[in-house]
Design a protein around this nucleic acid. Structure first.
Lengths: 150, 150
DNA sequence: CATCCTTTTGCGTTTAAGATGCAAATAATT
DNA sequence: AATTATTTGCATCTTAAACGCAAAAGGATG
């Protein structure tokens, strides 16, 4: 089985059973929210989406569930400031991170991109991160003047 | 001039003059601390080192100075949890980040590694991040059992 | 070298992310 | 339907990071 393949929402209950997890409404809704989003949502963004389905869920549960999922490997965690973001694309890929608005855009890695020699073999997550200004932020003159340019 | 070249501590006063910054003892000590370290220090680690030279400096000043330096481009900021880390190696390179102890190890990028097509051109920082367990943490059996393995 | 002016620092305070402990609630199994 | 281990919600705590402002210090000028 390909560990980098994203599982679908339909497959989620079986995933829970296979890992001895209860398939709660909270877990399902959190997984579906991240799986369906293309925005690499933060905890709070995920919480906002999940509350529409499960109004009683707390932010703390979203934290716990997202980190649990990251530890189990069905989603990846992108350490970013001010807040970590989550993603279900598990294969090696590149992230463009806008320094102004925080937007994250995915790119596939070039074919045949090799890791540097000497890197530990049992890697969990490969991430090429490029930061700068996204098109929207670059277009805004007001933001441009605030942003230090080189 | 190569913008990815690290400036030396000796060159720092000239750098300040060129950018209209006052060359204060605080700025010099913060720069020297990160420049001399191979540990990718966090704000607090930098603060601890700088206090030996400038005992009165506050953590807030270290925050401000490090972020100012990152904005000016003489050091790079590595967004990591629980705290951001700073580095003076400005050229493209890879970071191995230990998921257990947070240790960061630098690797040069393989020759000819191309960026994915469509990435914004005016990039500020290219980072290949690989996470997993460092040798020290992998060697500790106690940690190994705590760590979920896949 | 003394003065002036701008920048920077230190201090107090604030916001927000993330984690934790425990009792109540709930899913899975019999 | 009852049982049991897991999970959630709630309250609380810790720490990273940022901000506003008055005091202090750097750097230029006469």
């Amino acid at each position: 089985m390909d560990k980098t393949r994203e599982i679908t929402v339909d497959e989620f209950p079986a995933f829970c059973r296979a890992h001895g997890l209860k398939c709660t409404a909270q877990r399902l809704a959190v997984f579906a929210a991240v799986r369906m989003s293309t925005e690499h949502p933060s905890v709070d963004a995920t919480w906002a989406a999940v509350r529409k389905q499960v109004p009683t869920i707390t932010r703390e549960s979203v934290y716990r569930i997202l980190n649990e999922f990251a530890a189990l490997g069905i989603l990846s965690r992108l350490d970013a400031l001010p807040a970590a973001r989550y993603d279900t694309w598990l294969g090696p890929h590149a992230h463009f991170v806008c320094e102004k608005c925080g937007k994250v855009i995915d790119y596939p890695l070039p074919d045949g991109m090799a890791l540097p020699k000497g890197m530990p073999a049992e890697r969990h997550h490969v991430e090429l991160r490029v930061s700068g200004l996204c098109d929207a932020c670059r277009g805004k003159s007001k933001l441009q003047t605030n942003q230090k340019r080189r």
